[in-house]
Amino acid sequence: MSNELINAAGQNWVGANLAFWFITAVVVGSATMAAFARNIVQAAYALFFTLLGVAGYFALLGSSFLAITQVVIYVGGILVLLMFGVLLTNRPLQERTHGELGRYLIAAIAGAVLLGGVLVRVVFSTPWKMAPAPAVPVPETAAIGRMLVGNYLLPLELAGMLLLLCLLGAAYLVRRQER
């Protein structure tokens, strides 16, 4: 593969590559904190930076639409929901932070690292089939909208039905129970 095909637009990738490594540092660091932080509130705050970094990956991979969706729904919705959950199930701080990571931490780390080793081995030993990707990402929001009301109409309707069911189910689960 010659560089000309990748680099058809004569684009310079220095900025994008630097951004990738900066985002990687943020994501890996904050995800480590989200997994290992003693305090669950700290873990939720660390998850905030992880999700923002993943949105940066989406922008680098050429989908600004998915990056914005990630920020709006994940950071603005799911993370706020998690924080509500943390604060609503609140307990005294000493009690909450004591022994948070449990007895199985060593076993969990060993098992997960073994599985991760297998994953990395597979990634590096597989000859991925590549196709020339356009150097400059295409603007895609309008095209995604057309796909959603075209070929992908059934998944869209199912997704709407699923959202409705989740809304009703969540409201049903947290109703005030008479005992």
């Binding site: 290992f36 199930t89 991760g116």
Partner: peptide
Amino acid sequence: AILFVLGLIACMARRNAIGILI
């Protein structure tokens, strides 16, 4: 893969259910 492994560790080792959700 790194994110997946960290999430797996959080799922297995956390005692707080919200930590598992994270």
